[in-house]
Amino acid sequence: MSESDRPEPGFSPERLAFFTDAIFAIAMTLLAVELERPDEQELASTRALGSFLVHERDSYLAFALAFILLWSVWRRHHKLMDRIGRLSSAFTAWHAPFLLLVAFLPFPTAVIGASATNPLADTLFAATMAAMVCCEAVIREISHRTGLTTGDPADTRHQADGSWAVGAWFLLSAALAWLLPYAFVLWFLAPLASPYGGALISRLRGPHPESRDVNAPRP
């Protein structure tokens, strides 16, 4: 690589991708660390252990939910970083709140695991996830507006629309937590909001200017 091709110090896409992967890996591991372990009395018999596992079922459900959601967000970010040719100050800066929320997620996960029917606990989790995916959407918006990605910029904007849709899904469904117990189970469907809700938002925003036919007559 020639000197002219080297990124500025602090703006290496590979280093940012590696650091982001590490934060996700730690957060996903901490989800399991937060799970309650049986003590000696609960391990003394099959019945006691069975009662313990049944009592902790909400924690396991919350763990599975958070792991699936983090996996989904990581996969989308991984695909984005594979298309990033360079970084900008704004793109890099927005990773700070994004990764802060990723690292924070094990806490609201433990809270809903301990009190799954508490609407405030569900709201805390939903607000964290909504803020996280909205940061993700902003990162995608920056990447397509400033030309940081390779390929079709319209595709990058469509992916940003998918992130906005997931954020909206969490905010809207959080209201159900105040009406229905175990409403957080709906969040297992959150990844589906990206393709379907994203398509709706893309339609409302209209076509990306750079994706229009260059031979089409101008108004």
Rank of each mutant, 00 (worst) to 15 (best):
L200M: 04
A190C: 09
L189C: 11
D152V: 01
A165T: 09
L69T: 08
P9W: 00
V111T: 00
S59L: 02
A32R: 02
R83P: 12
D161T: 01
E56D: 10
D161A: 05
A44C: 13
A193R: 08
W187Y: 09
A174C: 09
S194G: 14
L61H: 04
T109I: 00
L65W: 03
R37G: 06
L49P: 14
F125M: 09
E210S: 12
L53F: 05
R76V: 11
L200R: 05
M129Y: 14
D39E: 10
R76A: 13
A183G: 11
E210C: 06
H158L: 02
P207V: 00
V111D: 00
P181V: 01
D58N: 13
T117N: 14
T109Q: 04
S194H: 14
A130T: 05
L87M: 12
L65D: 04
R75G: 10
F63Y: 05
F11S: 02
R75H: 13
W187Q: 07
F104D: 04
V133W: 11
T123L: 13
L192Y: 10
R86T: 06
P181M: 04
D155V: 07
A130Q: 06
E8T: 09
A62F: 02
R86M: 02
S211R: 10
F52W: 04
G167R: 08
E36H: 07
S59P: 04
F188Q: 06
L148G: 00
A96C: 11
G206M: 00
L16K: 02
R57L: 11
W187M: 07
T123C: 15
F104M: 01
R218I: 12
R218L: 15
P153S: 01
Y60Q: 03
L148P: 01
A96Q: 15
L179M: 09
L35N: 04
R75V: 13
A216P: 11
A131M: 11
A103R: 03
A96K: 13
L148V: 03
E14F: 09
E36Q: 11
F63S: 02
E141D: 15
I68G: 10
M132N: 13
F184V: 12
D122Y: 10
R140G: 15
L49D: 08
P191D: 08
D161W: 03
E40P: 11
L53M: 07
L189Y: 10
A32M: 02
F104R: 00
M1S: 13
A96I: 15
A90F: 04
P9I: 00
V166M: 15
G151K: 02
F125P: 15
R37T: 12
A110R: 03
E141K: 10
L16A: 06
L105R: 01
P119T: 08
P153D: 00
A190Y: 15
L99K: 08
I84W: 06
A114H: 10
T29S: 01
L80V: 05
W178I: 07
F170P: 13
E141T: 15
L204G: 03
N215G: 09
P217F: 05
E14N: 11
H78F: 13
P97M: 03
I142T: 05
